[in-house]
Amino acid sequence: MAATPTTPKVPPRWFVRGAWIGHRLLYRTTGKGLARPRRDGKMGMLRLHTVGRKSGEPRVAIVGYLDHDGGFATLAMNGWAEADPAWWLNLKAQPETTVDTVDGPVRVRGREATGDEREQLWARFERATGWGEVESLSQRRHHTPVVVLERV
């Protein structure tokens, strides 16, 4: 009997949200939790500062990233939920911001990758460890933006 392809199971929403809260708490209390991408393909972690597009209040999200042309690239995934993550909506409204890396703060401008750049970055995320099976998981969404954070 032939095996049929299956979509990987996405963790329950309560687990994903708990992991986010725990990661932010770890950073806030210890200053640890950020990392550079590794040569073995493991993604890095950075803190992305945005301003709430409705509230005007400062917001912070810790996101996984890969290095890209002197800047950073990430996926706008909201724990594989249908809605875009708030940080991406905020970044689209106000693209110039700051990220915190293990090397310190960096001024960046966010934009969505398109065309060949998007396809190349998507392939890199597919190969990277720490994301799981991106292609299969992303099919649960209408479109997963690939976000480039260019140094300014």
Rank of each mutant, 00 (worst) to 15 (best):
Trp80Glu: 12
Gly79His: 04
Gln94Gly: 09
Ala113Glu: 01
Asp116Trp: 15
Lys32Pro: 15
Leu46Phe: 04
Arg59Lys: 05
Lys92Val: 14
Gly79Phe: 02
Glu96Asp: 06
Glu112Phe: 00
Lys54Tyr: 12
Leu91Tyr: 06
Ala35Leu: 03
Gln120Trp: 10
Asp84Gln: 02
Gln120His: 10
Ala86Thr: 04
Ala73Glu: 14
Ala123Trp: 02
Ser55Ala: 04
Gln94Pro: 09
Ala76Asp: 01
Lys32Phe: 15
Thr50Asp: 01
Pro105Met: 00
Asp69Phe: 05
Trp122Lys: 11
Val108Glu: 03
Arg107Thr: 12
Glu117Val: 05
Asp103Asn: 09
Glu96Asn: 07
Gly110His: 04
Thr30Leu: 08
Leu34Tyr: 09
Trp87His: 04
Arg59Asp: 05
Met45Asp: 11
Ala61Val: 13
Val106Gly: 12
Thr29Gln: 02
Glu57His: 10
Trp87Leu: 00
Pro58Tyr: 03
Gly56Gln: 09
Gly130Tyr: 06
Glu117Ala: 03
Arg47Trp: 11
Arg118Cys: 06
Trp80Gln: 11
Val63Cys: 12
Asp103Glu: 13
Ala86Cys: 07
Gln94Val: 05
Leu48Asn: 05
Trp20Tyr: 14
Leu75Asn: 09
His49Asn: 12
Glu57Asn: 12
Gly115Lys: 13
Gly33His: 08
Tyr27Ser: 03
Gly70Tyr: 00
Gln94Leu: 11
Thr30Cys: 06
Gln94Trp: 10
Val60Asn: 15
Trp80Asn: 09
Asp69Glu: 07
Arg111Glu: 06
Val63Thr: 12
Ala35Asn: 02
Thr114Gln: 05
Trp122Ile: 10
Tyr27Ile: 04
Arg53Tyr: 02
Gly22Thr: 04
Pro85Arg: 07
Thr74Val: 10
Ile62Ser: 14
Asp69Arg: 03
Gln120Lys: 13
Ala93Met: 02
Pro105Ala: 01
Thr98Glu: 12
Asn90Arg: 05
Ser55Gln: 00
Lys92Ser: 13
Arg124Phe: 01
Gly130Lys: 01
Asp100Met: 14
Thr29Glu: 09
Arg24Lys: 12
